[in-house]
Design a protein around this nucleic acid. Sequence first.
DNA 1: CTTGGCACTCGGGAACACAGAGTGCTAGAC
DNA 2: GTCTAGCACTCTGTGTTCCCGAGTGCCAAG
Lengths: 337, 337
Amino acid sequence: MLDERKLAVLRAIVEDYVSTNEPVGSKALAERHNLKVSPATVRNDMAALEEEGYITQPHTSAGRVPTDKGYRLFVDRLSQVKPLSGAERRAIETFLAGAVDLDDVVTRTVRLLAQLTRQVAVVQYPTLTRSTVRHVELVPLSDRRVMLVLITNTGRVEQRVVELPEVVEDARIAHLRAVLNSCLDGCGLSSVPDLVADLPERLPLEDRPVVATVLSVLLETLVERHDEKIVFAGAANLAGADFTTGLRDVLEALEEQVVLMRLLGETTSDTPSALTVRIGAENPYLRGTSIVATGYGSGDNQLARLGVLGPTRMDYPVTMGAVRAVARYVSQILAAS
Amino acid sequence: MLDERKLAVLRAIVEDYVSTNEPVGSKALAERHNLKVSPATVRNDMAALEEEGYITQPHTSAGRVPTDKGYRLFVDRLSQVKPLSGAERRAIETFLAGAVDLDDVVTRTVRLLAQLTRQVAVVQYPTLTRSTVRHVELVPLSDRRVMLVLITNTGRVEQRVVELPEVVEDARIAHLRAVLNSCLDGCGLSSVPDLVADLPERLPLEDRPVVATVLSVLLETLVERHDEKIVFAGAANLAGADFTTGLRDVLEALEEQVVLMRLLGETTSDTPSALTVRIGAENPYLRGTSIVATGYGSGDNQLARLGVLGPTRMDYPVTMGAVRAVARYVSQILAAS
DNA sequence: CTTGGCACTCGGGAACACAGAGTGCTAGAC
DNA sequence: GTCTAGCACTCTGTGTTCCCGAGTGCCAAG
């Protein structure tokens, strides 16, 4: 049904449309891509492609524009991820290397990605799930309140104020801290609930209410912060682009953690570092945008996802190259720290 | 020069223009605000106001539009801050009361303010300067690295990884932690540099390189994070409004901490809780926008600033009311925790 | 299967007229 | 002196018409 030449025509249409943002006609196409055939032939192929739903025309007597389905075919079969230039790679490396802590890594990553792609970049904070406990700290704030600080091996720090059910002197707090650390140090976060389950029973009766309170806050922290936090950058890049869906909707989605989460998608467990491309209506919300995302993380631990959001009409090869490269570098950085 | 009636006319122009977003003419004005005078008289007054530079007309035979100077006069002398409704106040209170930690307070505040004003809200994290040290924690990560965690009385947690110049066993770390805490606990952050200045000299010679390294990171943390972090919300509200300066510029400014900082302005030391209103060209960047901001913080400690950014054509009385109310409530919350 | 030719369609821009809103000015009324 | 009424003038925005050009679909010939 779709021979070599028709695919070449589709590719040419996508490339031209992406770069010019104007419907592309048969004549211009035939000469710009030296296809060795006449415009009339190209028209026939276009008619076939349109029949199949890969392209469409905004109105009669305008050029053709790729449909979501057309972009999909282009991404899957007609394009190759474009690697970054050496200069770009070096720039990424030095820029990310300067980060001082996890917050800084994430902030730098998201800015970098936005700048590189000239679109909106989205980065999810490394998930706690596969991290391990590096240290648990209890800091007395007053005689009825302590601050619980949880430090993970990814450098993430979670903090919560705990209201105690009774007055507790510092020595007992210190003891509890020691117990918690000996119990949890180095353990995966996902195993924490199991590990602390029987903890109250192993302690003196009078300590149990306090321990129970602290543990409930600890567990709450693990659950709530699970993979909630997502940041974005490069919203200014939306200003130029025209979205089929309103600009307002896009901005609203960016500020909604939950929506962003769904847009970035789940890491498919089998090939977590693969690039995910969602085009137009394939997205849950924001049907008029495309998203290029991938998992990242140190080693074979996939910790979280990052990606780029832009108009359906985007330069997929370049964007995919940038996302893949940034994911690799930030994974390296995380592995090293 | 400007009698009562001329001021009334100016006020009417501002109010009408803000609500309709269209240049307002003499006729509509005379009837909508029952000024008891004819349109012709209003026209004379308008001519005078225009002569003085308070209003202008986009083109001949269009209505009048307030200038920056006109808004300024309106804000200073012709309007009163509009208090929130009881329902709104209760909503604020319950919404803010649910916050679990400082991050949460700030996030909730900025969203609340954006929703309340239907504009872009900007909130600066409470400054460290006037906070005091609640606890310093050193957590060994490996034999050459420790994590430094600084907890303040405002519930803020700062963390940094410290690369040590030599291998240090945990006992020495614990000792150093004890020294640091006994030295700094409860002290104002601004006095930390003085307090630790002679610390190395009071310790055994072999500890000095390690201590010096840790201290330098500590001081660095205090300086760099000084009042750097600012968050915003409600960017989606920009979608509708039309800015004289490009939307792109506004979005770019929002992502630049430094620019935001300058826009929010310094807290004037004498009356820190006063509302600051910067109109149009009075702003350092973004000449086409207005900013309503104020300091907030617990008790008489002004910790940071928050505010709203919007088009020059904004409803100042309502916006000012919302900013003031939110600042008060968040100050209360911070004081209580 | 490809190509050249040809008639057809439609969007976008230019030219134009027109209605409506608003102004400034002047002369008269209170 | 101050306000009001009337009037001529000046704009912008909108709707209309017209035309050009790009692009298509189809058909017949190579």
